[in-house]
Simulated assay, not measured.
Amino acid sequence: MLNQSEEEIQVIIQHWIRIFNIKLGWIKNFDRLVVNYATIVFILDTFRSSSKLLKTFTGHTNCVNSIDYSAFDGAELICSGSNDKTVRVWDVEDNEQIQLFNEHSNSVYCVKFSPHHYHNYRRYVICSSSFDKSIRFWSINNDEELKIFNGHVGAVFGIEFSPFCGGRYLCSGSGDKTIRLWDLETSKSLHAFNGHTHYVWCVAFSPLQRNDKNDNNKSNNIGLIGGNGYTICSGSFDKTVRIWDIETTKQFLEFKGHYDYVRSVKYGSNKLKIHVRLWDIRSGQQIQVFNGHKKWVNAVEYSPFVINNLKIGDNTNVICSGSLDNTIRFWDIRSNKDELHVIKGDDQEDGGICCFKFFELKAKEKQSKSSDNLDYITLCYGSGKGRVRVWG
């Protein structure tokens, strides 16, 4: 390795990071090595100076509430769910819609590609949640509905696949004030978490286990799922963010501070209305508030970018927020000063940012910008008027 040129080392490190999703701090002796080279690719200034609108997908006739990206077997697909009651699948390279699922009887709130179905059965499957109180699974291979989960007695909003057990488990938040945990293999609801006093709008699984040795409550009626310590985070219209222990099925943490509905949560951050708030799970305290949006914030994400060649823990030090004010704003989590960068949607055609997602695109049109033919970071967002746009 020491005899390799610096350029070759950079390529090798970049490849390892993308293929295995290595995060800083995960391997102690690897930490500084990755800092030196990974930031060359993911530095925010590069994206800020060169990014532009690459593609626009049209077809939805109402707000796009959710998008997801898949690169299984080299096929680059985007799926989207909308208030027009449809789930659509788009081919990124060919820039066209390739499938339409329209069996929901009300707005589609969330869509996710299922890692479980692909890795276990080599099937391309999309999971969608809807205001019609159902969770549905769609086969792209066979252009059909595979199954329906009925259990919630209210609209189903956020859904998330488990980061453990190959995505076998699914959690869902509902207008019935509960979070449900589902087993995809048995198609059964394993548990309903109760505690919120209003709609549960968003949910997220913890990326790492919670190692709480002082927790002697072992009233586990689910069984050990994914290992001891995994948690679910939920955001609600009751203005709280709560964290639930999957093993004990108990709530063990509650964050209060929002003065309006919580519509998006990510581990390490959550948001609502005009403000984006950052919480410390260890202390239970709010540590940052980011102000700048002029309307509701619909989505937050940790970005893949860094600034000043620094990463904090397992997350990058730049978070992003998308709002009905038609902007996506980039923030330094170490400071609550003005945003680092702003992407502004089309005022006439977009009608606000409803959702967005970062992914690493392999499409051919960017190869002319870089001779190394590596992936590049792309931002895709869904708009209030039905357009899906790709920036990169």
Rank of each mutant, 00 (worst) to 15 (best):
E76H: 05
E76D: 08
I78L: 14
S80F: 05
G81M: 11
D84P: 09
K85S: 13
K85N: 15
V87R: 06
R88A: 06
V89D: 09
V89R: 10
V89F: 08
W90C: 03
W90L: 03
D91F: 13
E93C: 09
E93N: 13
D94N: 15
N95E: 15
E96A: 10
E96G: 01
I98T: 14
F101P: 07
E103Q: 12
H104N: 11
S105T: 13
S105F: 05
S107F: 14
Y109V: 03
V111K: 09
S114A: 06
S114T: 02
H117M: 07
H117C: 08
Y118L: 01
N120D: 07
Y121L: 04
R122G: 03
V125H: 10
V125Y: 10
S129G: 05
S130R: 12
K133Q: 14
I135N: 13
I135C: 11
R136G: 05
R136K: 15
F137Q: 02
W138L: 00
W138T: 00
N142S: 06
E144R: 13
E145A: 02
E145D: 00
K147R: 01
I148V: 14
I148W: 02
I148K: 13
H152S: 02
H152D: 07
G154F: 02
A155I: 03
V156A: 12
F157Q: 11
E160N: 11
F161N: 03
S162Q: 05
P163C: 07
G167K: 08
R168T: 02
Y169G: 09
L170I: 14
C171Y: 00
S172G: 05
G173V: 01
S174H: 04
S174F: 03
G175L: 02
G175D: 13
